[in-house]
Design a protein around this nucleic acid. Structure first.
Length: 555
RNA sequence: GCGAGCGUAGUGUAGUGGUUAUCACCGAGCGUUGCCAACGCUUGAACCCGGGUUCGAGUCCCGGCGCUCGCACCA
């Protein structure tokens, strides 16, 4: 990093701390790595970014907002693949308290211990009793998953159930699928969004706000029918050139429609969301020239993705991925379906109903039922698989038992079924936003150092859509009723929903403008002598310094 | 996690083992001024934490925590 760039970073970090944007958390207790506070100005900035994000997606009309817990039972994240992909399985030697990886201990006992789940490792560990590498005792604790997810116990003592703090908000949308499907009257496509905290116990948080242990994320899970070609109106972006770093074509610049047409972006919905993402980033104040999209290499993709584009933003730390737009296929719903046995599917009606002719065998319930008792169901399934030519009696292996199916147990089954549609697992396209990283770059791009009369001058050219304070009201001086009038104007601003105004009377007028510029207040209003006479005030614009007189009633 | 460097008011900093810890900006109050960081006076605020060496530690040593960078790990 160039020297002037890193000293700019230092000055900016100092300012962000001094002005209450972002601060290291718990500092009076020595601080905690990877955890940050949003201060008095940052808190509101974050809320406005979150709100803008929600509005951006819910305005599409078929997207709803949900909220699910951050505490997540073990099973959910085992089903999603996170336990396997995000954790190592650890066990503690009860004699010397040394911690070892369970799969490493069992390398001699199993061809591929890495593939085992927690319970299997537990069983194998108790059976094999491998010696502890440091003290040679064989007395191991229960296996616990450790590493990138924060472990916790849900409930107290022995009744406690293992869980994690969620590493992403997405799982809540998947586990709520049936409710969402019903909410949308069983019609795809639809989506659900969630803004909230996620947690990853990073081994080594770095680069300030870029890698955190607790972070703000905002995710959309958009469920689609893989057999329907999505129609998205991309004309809005016909004049926008996107910088794309594609896996096969290298760096190219083109419209999103062109990228989809050429197959560089492999799915239209992924492309549409890339364009939507671009709009959002620009709306919160990211410099459009410093946004690019990078396609993941096949070997780099997360365990769930089949195509993935990152939106990267250039800032003080170089190009940083701030949004991941992943085509997750049917991975998540399928995983939860397999794990729970619950149906997580949508129905697709056929254009023309299909006739299916069935001509084979089934059981005669009144005879086979009493004969096979609890196995009857499985016998039925097996018999219905048999070809028409089958001769009875026949021996079948049901649950390791050889049973004989007599001709009296069965009957011919001849029917014609009309299938009007089928059930399938929807595919998912997921834009996942790292809000903290975006906020960092919003601040980074807004932070402007200039000089004013040979003095260095700092201002935050924040977009009005995200500024923490909308207006500042100053009395030019505190006498003859100017401060009263200014306080009245300030209260009037504050009484408007969603508007924050701040009153400031300390220091010279120039100092107050400078203070307002540093936290990015777009408009300052000054009350002077003339205001007392004709009810007009000076309105001063942050970015230009331009002043105009405006009647109070027109503010 | 390993290695290197660093840690002093809100911010940026000065500080040979020896008074009450430097300076600037900053915040608060008062006064003068009154539309772009004005001035004067008053005032507020710090040696990351814990051990050790020493008569005496901000300064030297050890450990922890945090920050930055490199390697490793990783959305």
């Amino acid at each position: 990093m160039a020297n002037d760039a890193s000293s700019r970073l230092e000055r900016m970090s100092g300012m962000l701390k001094r002005r209450g944007f972002i601060l290291p958390a718990f500092e009076i207790h020595g601080g905690a790595k990877g955890l940050y506070d949003f201060g008095p100005n940052g808190g509101r900035l974050r809320t406005r970014v979150n709100q803008l994000w929600l509005d951006h997606w819910t305005s599409l009309g078929n997207i709803v907002e949900i909220s699910s817990p951050t505490i997540t039972p073990y099973e959910v994240l085992e089903a999603s693949g996170h336990v396997g992909e995000f954790s190592d399985f650890m066990t503690t030697c009860l004699a010397c308290q040394d911690v070892s990886r369970a799969d490493t201990l069992l390398e001699g006992a199993h061809p591929n211990p890495d593939s085992l789940n927690k319970d299997e490792l537990d069983v194998l560990l108790q059976k094999n009793q491998p010696p502890c590498p440091s003290c040679a005792t064989s007395d191991w604790s229960k296996v616990v998953a450790q590493n990138l997810m924060f472990n916790t116990t849900i409930g107290a003592g022995n009744s406690g159930r293992p869980g994690f703090l969620r590493p992403e908000t997405a799982q809540g949308m998947f586990t709520s699928f049936t409710s969402l499907y019903r909410h949308f009257r069983e019609k795809l496509p639809f989506g659900a969004v969630q803004v909230g905290k996620g947690y990853r116990n990073e081994i080594s948080p770095r680069q300030g706000m870029i890698r955190l242990r607790e972070f703000n994320m905002a995710e959309l899970e958009y469920f689609i029918d893989p057999q329907t070609t999505p129609q998205h109106d991309l004309t809005k972006w016909d004049n926008v050139s996107f910088d794309l770093l594609s896996e096969d074509n290298g760096q190219v610049t083109m419209t999103i429609a062109e990228a989809i047409a050429k197959g560089i972006v492999r799915h239209p919905t992924v492309g549409y969301f890339m364009a939507m993402t671009y709009d959002f980033l620009v709306a919160v104040g990211i410099n459009a020239d410093r946004i690019r999209f990078r396609q993941h290499e096949s070997n780099e993709m997360a365990h769930y993705a089949t195509d993935c584009w990152d939106a990267e933003i250039e800032g003080s730390y170089g190009w940083i991925e701030c949004v991941g737009i992943a085509h997750r296929g049917c991975y998540d719903l399928e995983s939860h379906e397999k794990y729970t046995g619950k149906t997580l599917r949508a129905r697709r009606e056929f254009a023309t109903p299909q006739e299916v002719v069935i001509d084979g065998w089934t059981i005669d319930g009144s005879i086979a039922g009493p004969a096979f008792r609890s196995l009857a169901g499985k016998v039925k399934t097996a018999v219905e698989q048999l070809p028409l030519e089958t001769e009875f009696p026949i021996s079948l292996n049901i649950d390791e038992q050889m049973i004989s199916v007599e001709s009296s147990h069965v009957k011919r089954l001849q029917k014609t079924e009309t299938l009007t549609g089928e059930w399938f697992i929807p595919h998912v396209v997921e834009p996942a936003f790292g809000i903290d990283r975006i906020i960092w770059h919003v601040l980074d791009h807004a932070y402007t150092e200039t000089t004013k009369q040979d003095d260095s001058y700092t201002m935050m050219k924040l977009s009005p859509s995200v500024v923490p304070i909308d207006y500042c009201v100053f009395p030019l001086f505190e006498k003859d009723g100017m401060s009263e009038l200014a306080k009245m104007v300030n209260e009037r601003f504050n009484s408007k929903r969603g508007i924050i105004s701040s009153y400031d009377s300390s220091g010279s007028i120039g100092r107050r403008y400078a203070r307002a510029d540093e936290i990015g207040v777009p408009i300052c209003v000054t009350i002077d002598h003339q205001s007392l006479e004709d009810n007009t005030v000076t309105v001063r614009i942050r970015d230009t310094g331009e002043q105009t007189r405006v009647p109070i009633d027109e503010l």
